[in-house]
Simulated assay, not measured.
Amino acid sequence: MKLKKTITATLLGLGLMTAISTSPAFAAEKLPAFTDNKQMVEYFWNEVFNKHNTAVIDEMTAHNYIQHNPGFADGRQSFEDGIEGFLKEFPRSKAVIKHIGSDGDLVFIHNHITLNDADRGQAAVDIFRVKDGKIVEHWDVIQDIPATSANNNTMF
């Protein structure tokens, strides 16, 4: 369980900073035109965590980004290095957005993280600050999805 939490914290705590793939399948493409921060972060999230397309990292994140997850250092390179190993170890991982909202320069994503199809997963909220069209800062809170609940509500 501790390893699972550490791995999941790696996934989200990386503040979405990932290693740049050299595979031609992930060649950088021209980014779409975004109308707002929410649309930009949603695109980034899905490319990285659901399509595992890490080529978007350089164009969409600030080099000196600030990380509030205590397990990781500030700066893009620290996170690029960490997520590369995660995606190799868990190639079937995904983080499906259940809710998304924004307030000014902040974007909030409530998501369901799974490491593979059999994983019950975790519920997480990630918060991103965007400045000048780049992700510059990240916070997260993560909790396991239990086998049983004291109520009939889901975590989403």
Rank of each mutant, 00 (worst) to 15 (best):
I57R: 04
I20C: 08
E89A: 15
V56P: 03
N46G: 13
L3T: 15
F90G: 07
S21I: 00
L12H: 14
I113T: 06
I97G: 09
N64G: 09
L12M: 09
I145V: 15
K4Y: 15
Y65E: 01
R129A: 05
V125L: 14
G104E: 03
E80G: 13
E80K: 13
S23E: 00
D36K: 03
F34L: 04
K38D: 00
L16A: 05
A27H: 15
S149V: 07
L31W: 03
P91I: 02
M60P: 10
E42H: 08
A124F: 08
A28W: 00
H110E: 00
F34A: 13
M1H: 14
A33L: 09
D140W: 07
H63M: 11
M155H: 14
M17Q: 02
I20Q: 07
L106H: 12
Y43Q: 05
A124H: 00
K4N: 14
A9C: 07
K2L: 15
I135N: 06
K2N: 05
Q77M: 12
E80S: 14
Q122P: 01
I109P: 02
L115M: 11
F86H: 02
Y43I: 04
N152R: 11
R129V: 07
Q67C: 13
G13K: 04
M40C: 08
A95G: 10
M60W: 14
A118W: 14
G15F: 11
A55C: 07
L14Y: 11
Q67L: 07
N64T: 02
A95Y: 01
K2P: 13
L106M: 14
K2Y: 08
T148P: 08
F49W: 15
F79Y: 10
F79E: 11
K30F: 06
I83E: 03
W139T: 09
D132C: 08
G101I: 00
Q77H: 09
H68N: 10
L11N: 01
F128Q: 03
A95M: 08
A62G: 10
H138K: 05
K38I: 00
